[in-house]
Amino acid sequence: MEALIASAVGLMTAAGIYLILRLRTFPVIVGLSMLTYAVNVFIFASGRLTVGLPPILDSTASGYTDPLTQALVLTAIVISFGMTAVIVMMALGAFLSTGSDRIDDAAEDRAETGGRAE
C-alpha cells in the first residue's frame, strides 16, 4: 500500500509541476489543484497508513490512526478551495482585462519597459 500511495503522490506532483510550467493560466490552475492533492496526501501519509482504525474514540476499538495529520489536512483542503477560487478569479480578471491568458509577460512588453514591472 505504501508504494501505491508514494507513487500516486509522485505522479500527482509531477503532473502538477508540469502543468504549472505551462504558459497559460488554466493549466496552471489545474496544476496547482494537482499539487494540492499531492501535498494533502503527503501530509496525511506522514502520519503513517492505517486501515480500519478511525480516529473516533470507542471502548471497543483496538487502536487508532493519527488524528493530527487528519486535522491538518482537513483545514488545508478547505483553505485550498479558497485559494483556488482566488487564483481563478485573478486569472479571469486578467483575461477579461487584457484579452490574453498568458502567464508570462510577453517578451515585447518586457523589452518596451526595459523589463521593469510597471
Binding site: 500527482m12 509541476i17 510550467l21 503527503f42 501519509a45 506522514s46 503513517r48
Partner: peptide
C-alpha cells in the same frame, strides 16, 4: 523538472512511510 520533482516527493513520502 516535473519528473525529478515527482520522484523527490514520492521517494520522500515512501521513505517516511
Amino acid at each position: 523538472i516535473a519528473t525529478l520533482a515527482g520522484l523527490g516527493a514520492g521517494g520522500l513520502i515512501y521513505a517516511l512511510m
